[in-house]
Design a protein around this nucleic acid. Structure first.
Lengths: 198, 198, 198, 198
DNA sequence: AATGAATGAGCGTTCATTCAT
DNA sequence: TATGAATGAACGCTCATTCAT
């Protein structure tokens, strides 16, 4: 009998440890040797669990997206009013800003190297696209696609600004502003379902 | 002396031709050979004008930022009402979306590989940070930093979404929505200077 | 004690299954993993029965040579006239051409990687050299070494041509021609013992 | 202006220097590093002249076959009688035995790694197949395909025996024997064109 | 100024081999 | 006995960079 190892579990452990490395250096700049060293294994072991670098990266992104959706979904469920959710969103963004920045680096890297390969229509990518969308939908408690997209863009933008090093953007302040905006907009242009969950 | 003029001019020509290459492949993935080939010169020539790959990239980003600021400033000057500017912004984003996506790729790449090197305080980076900020300030005709940041984030987010392949985000629609939001917000929370340029 | 029998038997089984793999890919190109997979065992098992790849290969060649000699010797015994034997040789070559090609690949591979290690004088190699020699001697029923060598070279050459992909060489035709040659030669230059086994 | 180098000429020089290495170690066992070191260049230079190892090997074989045909054709032209040619063949085989063994190693290696890729019908391979054939045809001064094939097989066989380390095969003796065989055969079975070139 | 041949460290990957189970 | 996870040296190959011309 061989060494007893839960293959799939170990794979996920390796992936989790990879996250920071890919995010900080970028796909093309991080080397398999560096990854192996950082994870405390040999390159051979890396290749025992993943056929190649690209596959390792794709599994990493996949895993990341899944976890993100799971977490966001769970967190949003317990909140009922839009106000609560606005605060939760701000907190969520702020507390996990580093994570979101890294996550965004990965997504950007991924999109850049998958271009022109029809990945846009893949189930993988669709699930990924639902990510913020579902988060935002849940938050707003409505199905106004334009409004949801607006919030999604805003959230992305906040992250991108921080990612680019613009520390002067105040996440909490911006989220509050967003809340006010939404309220003012809905009041002016009318909305029959002002509170989610009702 | 005339040599110097040619030298600098040729440098800028080379940089302009580099833009797409770096944006599409990413800094780490594009090779000096590929660049040289695409520019129709030898690698030796490339190294004659730039000491190394990193310097070439930095000059490219620098040049790009300068051009962007110049163009945006010039375009905004002639417009007077917020409505005009909102429309101009939408048009600007839409018409040059490809350019903005590429530009963003470069900025992201740049920030990723400059990390932990104190570039954030460099004059280069500060000028760069003023980029959207000045664009937005001009657009709004006000000095409400939070509002300006909000718009900046929104613009960034729209670009990021498209960069990530989410073609369902409608740029025009989103800009219109943004216009309405701003209006509703200013109406509700009061603002003494509703129109720029007055 | 019974274990030992099984052990050796299993070794031979493994070797037989290896034959095609080494012949088709060559010693350096076939991997222990591929061999193990093809044999339906683990690499660990392979190493349990053979200390390393080289040893596995040498045992394979050894085994192959022994079997070849045994088969050839057995087949030739029942035939009495030179004509019978000429036909048998043709048939033998033709029917087992694939096998002979593979066998030759192994021998060539073996000789190439044993060079400059004095294997030429090893009992292993001497036994191997007797291979065709004994086959040819038996066939001709004489001890004219030059003639035997001639036939051996011819047989080798036919195999080599086919191995190299020259399918235009007709084995049966060539064997018939060889038969006529030998007859014509012996008739002209005289030979007191025209028929073997007398 | 770059360093002045006759690209094609240098390529051929490199190929000539490669010959022994590939012949002694075999395609799969020789490494690009070893080749580079032996040729006194860097691996980068090797890859500057050949896109990859396979291509290097194929060019080597191609070049070898061309040279071989050229040499054989030139040498045979001046000889008129079959007797002269028989002697020349023996001398040729004997004097260049080492070369022929190496050449055969390359051809065998080549055939083994090109299998199942339809190379058999390629112009490259056809030219190669004409190699011995044309040599033998020239030698015999006739178009009896079977007889030519017979000689070709014999020559191949002699080389293969030596390649396998069987030094007891006497090349001169065997060639003489072959000459007698042919004579005896032609006398017995008749042949209207006993002398080539007449 | 401009070329491209040359370099060699370093990349992604493989593979014979070991060893805990 | 049998397994397959783990190792790391070494492979084919790349690429930023240098330099003779």
């Amino acid at each position: 009998m061989p060494k007893i190892v839960d293959h799939d579990l170990y794979r996920k452990e390796l992936l989790n440890k990879c996250f920071d490395l890919f995010a900080q250096k970028g796909y093309a700049s991080i080397t398999m040797r560096q990854i192996a060293k950082e994870l405390g294994v040999s390159t051979g072991t890396l290749y025992h669990y993943f056929p190649n670098k690209k596959s390792l990266f794709e599994h990493l992104v996949e895993e990341m997206v899944q976890q993100e959706i799971a977490i966001a979904t769970a967190d949003w469920k317990t909140l009922t009013t839009r106000q609560q959710r606005a605060e939760a969103l701000g907190k969520y963004l702020l507390c996990n800003l580093d994570y979101h920045i890294k996550s965004s680096y990965l997504m950007i890297d991924f999109s850049q190297h998958q271009d022109s390969q029809g990945y846009v229509d893949s189930p993988f990518w669709l699930r990924l696209c639902e990510r913020y969308q579902s988060v935002i939908y849940e938050f707003l408690g409505l199905e106004d696609r334009a409004l949801a997209d607006f919030m999604m863009c805003f959230v992305d933008g906040v992250i991108l600004e921080r990612l680019l090093g613009n520390d002067r953007v105040d996440v909490v302040e911006q989220c509050t502003l967003m809340g006010k905006m939404i309220s003012a907009y809905l009041e002016k242009y009318g909305y029959e379902k002002p509170e989610p969950g009702n």
